[in-house]
Design a protein around this nucleic acid. Sequence first.
DNA 1: TATTGTTATACTCTATAACTATA
DNA 2: TATAGTTATAGAGTATAACAATA
Lengths: 158, 158
Amino acid sequence: MPIQYAESLSFLLSQLGAHTARRFAGELDGTGLTPRAFGVLSNVADLGPRSQQQLADELGMHRNNMVALVDELEGVGFARRVRNPEDRRSFRIEATAEGRRATQRAMAIVTRLDEELARALTDSDAVALTDLLRDVSRDAGLAPGVHPHLSGRREPPR
Amino acid sequence: MPIQYAESLSFLLSQLGAHTARRFAGELDGTGLTPRAFGVLSNVADLGPRSQQQLADELGMHRNNMVALVDELEGVGFARRVRNPEDRRSFRIEATAEGRRATQRAMAIVTRLDEELARALTDSDAVALTDLLRDVSRDAGLAPGVHPHLSGRREPPR
DNA sequence: TATTGTTATACTCTATAACTATA
DNA sequence: TATAGTTATAGAGTATAACAATA
C-alpha cells in the first residue's frame, strides 16, 4: 500500500511549499539576503519606509525579531535606520539604492524558479495553477505577499 | 506598488505550503503525533516494518534524528522496537494497533484540511489543482509522500 | 503611564562527531 | 573494519520578559 496522503492537496501543497522555500533560500545564497530579510526589504522598497513596529505588525511578527533582521540589512548596506523627527522613539527603515538592486536580483531568482517549477506544464496550465493558488491563498485569509515564516512558529488565527 | 512577488507561483506555493503545514500541525495537536512522527509512523504502517537506518534513508534524513522520533512513537505506544533476529544490530520498527488507529485519525485530519483548502473552488477545479501539483511535484524530483521537512534544513540535491 | 527599540535568557530543532554493540 | 543505533555538543531560530529612551 502506498503512502495514503501522498496525493492529497494538503500534502502536495506542504511538500512543494517546503521544496520551493528551500530552492529559493539556496538560490538566494551569496546575494547577501536571507529569505526573511528579503521579505522585509522588498516590503520597504515597494511600500515605502516605515518603523520597525509597523513592519512587524504588517508582516505578522514580533518587533523583537525585527531588530536582527534590520541589523542584517544594515550590515550589508541594503537598508538604513533613520530617526523619525516626528517621533524620536522610532526609526524609518529605508531601502538603499543597493538594497533596491538586491531586491531586483532576488525577483529575477523568483522568476527563474517559477519557470523551473512550471517546466512540466503547458503555459496555460501554469497560469491556471497560479490562479487557483491565488484563490486558495486569499480564501485561507493569507495576506498577499506576507509569508507565514516571517511570523515565527505559531499557528495563525483561523 | 504592491509586493512584486505576491502572485508568483514560487511565492504562492511557499506561502500556502507553510500555511498548510501549520494548520496540519495545529490539528494534530492532542493526537499524540507530531507531523514528523506521523511521517515515520504512516510509512511503517503502510509499507511495513523496517530498520531505523532504512527509514532514515527512504525519508531523506539522518539516522541520528530517527532515534528521537522512534522514542516519541514508542513513548505514546504507537510503535515498537523489535530486535531483528537476522541482524541483531538493528531493530524492526513496527506500528502497533493503536498506532494504526492514530494514523487513520491523522488521515481524517488531512481529508478535512483538503476540504477546507479547496472550499473556494469548484470540485473540478480542486481536482485540477491537485493534479497539477502532483505533476509539478514529480517533475521537481520529489518522492511521493516524502516531506522535505523530514530531512532537516539542507537544500536537496538538484 | 504607554510605546519603540533593544537586550538577555530559555527552548526547540538540527548538524556533527564520537561512542557501543554487533557483524 | 564496517554498520546500526545511541549519546553529546554546538549551532540556528524563535518566544518571553525586562530594560532604556521617548512620548
